[in-house]
Each structure stands twice: as C-alpha cells, then as structure tokens.
Amino acid sequence: MLGRTANDLFWMARYMERAENMARLLEVGHRLSLLPHEDGGQEWRSTLQSAGCEASYIASHDTFETREVVDYLLFDKSNPSSVYCCLSTARRNGRAQRTAITREMWESLNGAWIEFSRSASENVASDALPALFDRIRDRSALFRGALLNTILRNDTFYFTQLGTFLERADNTARILDVKYYVLLPQNELVGGGLDSAQWAAMLRSVSAHRSFRWVYRDAFKPWHIADFLILNPQMPRSLHSCYAEIMQALSGLSQSYGLETSCQALAGTMLSRLKMLDMPGIFQAGLHEFLRDFISDNSRLAYEIAAAYHFND
C-alpha cells in the first residue's frame, strides 16, 4: 500500500469520527444552554475547549452566543474541525483512495457530504438543530457500519481503525479534562456536591448516560464516571477500549508486514497502564495530570505511526 493511501485512510476515518464527536458535543452544549443557568456562555466555552477550538473561536468572535458557537462548529469553512470541514475532508480523502475503499464506504461518505453540504446555517432553524445533530450521527454510524461490513481485514482496515480510535481516545480524554478542570469548583473535593446535570451531560456527550446506569447502578458519582470513561473495557468510547482497538490494529499491521515498530511498543505501554491503574491511583496522582499526559502520548503515537508507515515520505 502507498504511504499516501495509508495517510488518506487514516485521516478519512479520523475526520468522520471527529464529525460525529462534534455533533455529540454540540448536542450536549445545546442541551445545557437550554437549562436555567446563571452563565450559559461558560458552557459553550467548555464545549469549544473540548472540541479543541477555543483559541481559534476567540480570535474571530467576541461573545459565546449559542448561534455563533453552533455555526462555528457546524458550518464554518475556516474552522478545520467544523462538521462541514470534517465531512468535506473525509470525502476528499476517500475520493483520492477510491481503489482502497469499498463501494459502500464511498457511498456513505459521498452521501453524508452531499446531504450536509446542502444544509447551510441560514436554512437551519434553531428548533431544527437537534434533528441535524441526529442526522450527522446517523451518517457517521452508516459509514462505520459500511466499513466494518465490507472492508478487507488487511492494512486498509488497520489504518482506518487507527484513525478512528486515536481520534476517539483524544475526544474522550478532552471531554473529561475540560469538564473536570473547568466545571469543578476549585475548593471542592472531587466527588463532592457536583451538579449532576454536568456529569449527566458529560456522559451524554459520549452516548453513555444510559449504559452507565446499567454498569454502575447508582447515582452519578464522579469517580465512577471517570472510571467508566477511562478504565472500563466494556465502554466502547473509554480510553481502555480505544487502546485495545489500537493495539489490535497495530498487531495486525505488524503481523501482515512481518515488522515490529516502535509505535507498537508505545501503544502497548499505554494499554498496560490503563489495565493496571485504578481510580484511586489516578486521583491521587491528579486526574488532570493523567489526562494531559494521555493526550500528549496519544498525539505522539499518531505522529509515530505516520513516521513508521511512511505516511508522508
């Protein structure tokens, strides 16, 4: 496989995953903005932080009005992480690799793009936003389904898996970090009287507000939520799950290429740490510090994968 092909597949998957995460973050932000808050702007600010778009937003906007933030994250062509740009980039990557992806994958990419590019900000009424968020998630699910059902289990599959799960891990870690750090009053202990709406919102943003109850069967407790999103291998968006998938993809690659790479060692270390740690340990060392290190290791891994498999030679 060409290095360029691997690069395009990786980013195609990453951008589709990002579009979906963006839709979810927006959904939650939108929901919180409807609650009787003293400061709705703060909510949107943390949504922008989770999306990794705070600095660029502030550079071009003065306020955190709902509609402005939503437009920035959905439609803004100057924001590379807007849903518009994610879908457009994913489709462009897929189009450049029509020989590597299946017809079903192409049709879902193409369909997502054609549908979304027709809905411009001025045509979407505020009360139509939730439906639009749903559609973005549906489209992403369709793509993922097409991928899992039709793709050959060879390097094509492994590189798309890597893109998906590196992006997902990054997203989950950011959501946790932002909520933990921003929303927790400084003088309050972790596990103290937190507004449960905040924690519920966090679970919603990873589609886990219902599954959480099935796993923990008690009220939202921050350490349980952190446990769920970081360490629980059953939770498909937890860091643990993401790294189990990443590890599988990397082993698959090294088997089919007959070559061990340094990224496999790095991912292996990260996965075994997630397996061994428990929440008391993480809290003791500092949740924020843990997440900050994780996010940076995660991007280092992406970088090493690109180097090991000659993405940009």
Binding site: L2, F159, Y257
Partner: peptide, 23 residues
C-alpha cells in the same frame, strides 16, 4: 494494482520505486 501519482514514485539507482507503508 496501485493507483499512483507522480509524487508517489521516486527513482533510485536500482530503478523506479513507489513509496509504500513498508518503505
């Protein structure tokens, strides 16, 4: 077979090479 663009190919002393994930 692979679909390549010119920048995916490079010539070395031994011949014309394509830049793959395995070198």
């Amino acid at each position: 077979v692979e679909l390549v663009e010119a920048h995916d190919l490079v010539s070395t002393e031994t011949g014309v090479m394509m830049k793959t994930t395995q070198g």
